[in-house]
Amino acid sequence: MRARGIGLPANFFSHYARQLGTLSGLLGMCVVLSVATPFFWTVSNLLNVAEQAVIIAVVAAGMTFVIITGGIDLSVGSVLAFAGVVMASVLQAGVPVPVALAVALGTGLGCGLLNGALITVGRLPPFIATLGMMSVARGAALMFTEGRPVSGFSGSFRSLATGEVLGVPVSVVIMVGVYVVAHVVLTRTKLGRYTYAIGGNEEAALLSGVNVRLYKAAVYGISGMLSGLAAVILTARLNSAQPIAGMMYELDAIAATVIGGTSLLGGEGTVVGTLIGALIMAVLRNGLNILGVPSFVQQVVIGSVIIAAVLIDMWLKRRAG
């Protein structure tokens, strides 16, 4: 109400306060690290941070769709590994790079839609369906490769990771592209509108004529497909597809989403917030590394930051509510 005079929607501040808060958290961390160490605020290190953020950020974009519907996708890391080894083997069989990319995205999409079918048609809780898929996809990746990595690809494929556009790594460009598209889809399309409506009140959405099953399955498809895309980037970067790749990525992706202000209860959230959340995680890891913090301690710090971020978020929400 207070904002009406200057032509802003009444809930402008409550709507953007969270992202502004997360963003200031990110910037604050950057300032502290810049003061603490001369190595942090350099172009090469910042690009390095962005590159490190890419994989989790791409996975977390899909996770955000899923969590906004009130669901969860625990299978993203395993699907990433499976999509990676499938793509790697077709690449080595000599198919052109664009076809291999389609195979990676298609494999991820297929796994995601299968999750969606189990949840909507099979009426399984998302936690259970994707927990099962987490194990199935991991096992499939290991079976497919007999447990060995698939390595060695052409230069044109590897340029997806090593190449640059105007000095920016290709993978970072891909990530930015993913977030632009995801933001537009969430805010401007029917799919986006229905994603929020289902998470906000599934029953009301159904009674308003939303094909809840279809759109729910679609968000799991999106999540799977983005896991496939993350597999492409990771495989190109390592010049190797590993069946054990992506372990625990689901937790990092969920953490990035939640730090970014998306509610696990559904109905609320933005991909912009998730991107900031993924960057916070990457900056934190990078900073702790530069500062020489032992890796065991790093885990404690990262976990504490996740808890603190959500505590603050909930506290702000209660005050606004």
Binding site: K190, Y194, Y196, N201, A204, A205, L207, S208, G267, E268
Partner: peptide, 23 residues
């Protein structure tokens, strides 16, 4: 419980059954 998606806006709720019309 059934009529409204509480965390969504007046506009989004109001247009929910007829989004197709505007899409």
């Amino acid at each position: 419980a059934q009529g409204l998606v509480l965390p969504l806006s007046v506009k989004d709720n109001l247009c929910l059954p007829s989004v197709d019309k505007f899409t």
